[in-house]
Design a protein around this nucleic acid. Structure first.
Lengths: 144, 144
DNA sequence: GTATTACCTACTTCTTCAATAGGTTTATTG
DNA sequence: CAATAAACCTATTGAAGAAGTAGGTAATAC
């Protein structure tokens, strides 16, 4: 299948959505799910991950919901995807906690995969949530 | 799991192996499988794909085997992986033959994924099998 | 005609992705 | 205080795909 799973894609979309609505205080899951067309239950499991890693805070009870903990420009795409994708490693032997490959010494392709790893991380770390938000325009946002 | 599956990794390793032994004429599958530590049956299904796409030719019967159809420098890594990986698309909506996403117009992340696609293809297309071969040295290879 | 090799179709097993179900705890509000 | 609204938690399911296996058929050399 695709490199990035729905979980990672959804997580990113949700972070952008929350950034665009960050002036509205705590936003209930239900609202995000409706806006983004994602099932509430599935979204819940994604938000749990983001809360655990403190990218978001949750507040229970009436009037509660979720909120960003930082400015949108301080979240990189890489950080979000590394949390929600089980692995962004190019190949199995570069995965976290992978056993050392006995062929590593003679492996012709190791350099290729490490290079790919660098390319990917470089790309993902160079983009922030702020870069992905809709450009501010009259009526779309307001200045404090 | 990892971005590149074992099928794609094996295919690449095998192409490099065959490039390094290209002076020896047709090489039987059995030999490649042993050298690379891959099950014969599994390797067979990978080679079938490469033959169909004419990256290799096969010859049956005694003395038969597989052989490259071009010089190693004329195979890009991208070509090999696109054949053997079911998909190298970053996300589902950029897969070949994917339905047009109804959210495409308002999608905040489409540009990100297209950019990733370009980065990946650029990387893979810039490396050839010749780049991955062991450097020629005395006793390791010979000149015609 | 026998051995060797590629070629072909189908199947199995295991894992992971995506999503669902059903509850418990915390906070607000009337 | 009771009702409601929300986050939080554990477990389960269904479908798809990855990885590998099994058993045969066709071509070629000797």
């Amino acid at each position: 299948m695709a490199i990035i799973s729905t979980k990672g894609r959804y997580a990113l979309r949700v972070m952008i959505d929350m950034a665009e609505h960050r002036r509205e205080g705590y936003i209930p899951l239900k609202e995000i799910a409706q806006r983004q067309g994602i099932s509430e239950k599935y979204l819940e499991s994604i938000l749990k991950t983001l809360v655990r890693a403190r990218l978001l805070t949750g507040l229970r009870g009436k009037g509660g919901g979720y909120k960003l903990t930082r400015e949108p420009s301080l979240y990189t795409v890489g950080e979000i995807l590394r949390l929600t994708e089980d692995s962004l490693a190019p190949v199995a032997c570069l995965e976290e906690g992978a056993a050392v490959c006995p062929r590593a010494g003679e492996c012709r392709t190791l350099k290729l995969w490490k290079g790919l790893n660098d390319v990917l991380n470089g790309y993902f770390n160079s983009v922030t949530v702020a870069d992905l938000m809709a450009p501010a325009q009259a009526g779309n946002d307001y200045i404090i």
